[in-house]
């Protein structure tokens, strides 16, 4: 077919790829790069499990063409922390038992990160968190603990200097 060269920056690393023009960013992450932390489900921007950060903002990678991410910075759940150095959101999700089946959690955490980063440390209300997460569905319906975890993480991140919060 007609593959085109595409250089994507994912979690700070540059990846040189040959992609079909119709491939979604989700397809490239999972199939071409084996980065299966980003989940695949509805493929129509309804459920949010495929959420990644594009220049810091949460987007549905299932309906974003990989081409549309050219020249921009992508962060996936793999880029957020590791078992020794958890992001405060990851630590809070564990502490609050916010993870049931786990399938929505990468999307939940990245959606929450994008939301909290935009607020520059201001701690959100429960209603604001629920609205912010409305594009990300948990079919275990474990929302209460997820919302609790996001607020707890926000409180912790609130005490950080701005530069550390962005990391």
């Amino acid at each position: 077919m007609t593959r085109q060269a595409l250089d994507l920056t994912i979690n700070g690393e540059s990846h040189q790829l040959m992609v079909e023009p119709h491939w979604s960013l989700l397809h490239v992450l999972r199939r071409e790069l084996g980065m299966t932390g980003t989940k695949e489900n509805c493929l129509e921007a309804e459920c949010g499990v495929c959420t990644v950060l594009l220049d810091g903002k949460a987007v549905n990678s299932c309906i974003l063409l990989a081409e549309q991410a050219r020249g921009r910075s992508i962060v996936t759940i793999e880029g957020l922390g590791d078992p020794e150095h958890l992001h405060p959101l990851q630590a809070a999700f564990i502490e609050h038992g916010a993870v049931q089946c786990g399938y929505c959690i990468p999307g939940m955490i990245l959606t929450a990160k994008s939301f909290l980063d935009e607020r520059h440390g201001r701690v959100p209300s429960e209603a604001e968190v629920r609205e912010a997460l409305s594009g990300t569905l948990c079919r275990c319906t474990g929302y209460q603990k997820i919302v609790d975890a996001v607020i707890a993480a926000a409180r912790q991140m609130n005490s950080w200097p701005e530069a550390a919060r962005k990391a």
Binding site: M1, T2, Q4, E20, P21, H22, W23, S24, L26, H27, R30, R31, E32, G34, E40, L43, C62, L65, E67
Partner: peptide, 19 residues
């Protein structure tokens, strides 16, 4: 790395070029 054949993310029947 590839998933099973019934995956719903199969490419659309017709591709396009991107400009």
């Amino acid at each position: 790395m590839s998933l099973n054949a019934s995956s719903r993310s199969a490419p659309p029947a017709m591709s396009f070029s991107f400009h």
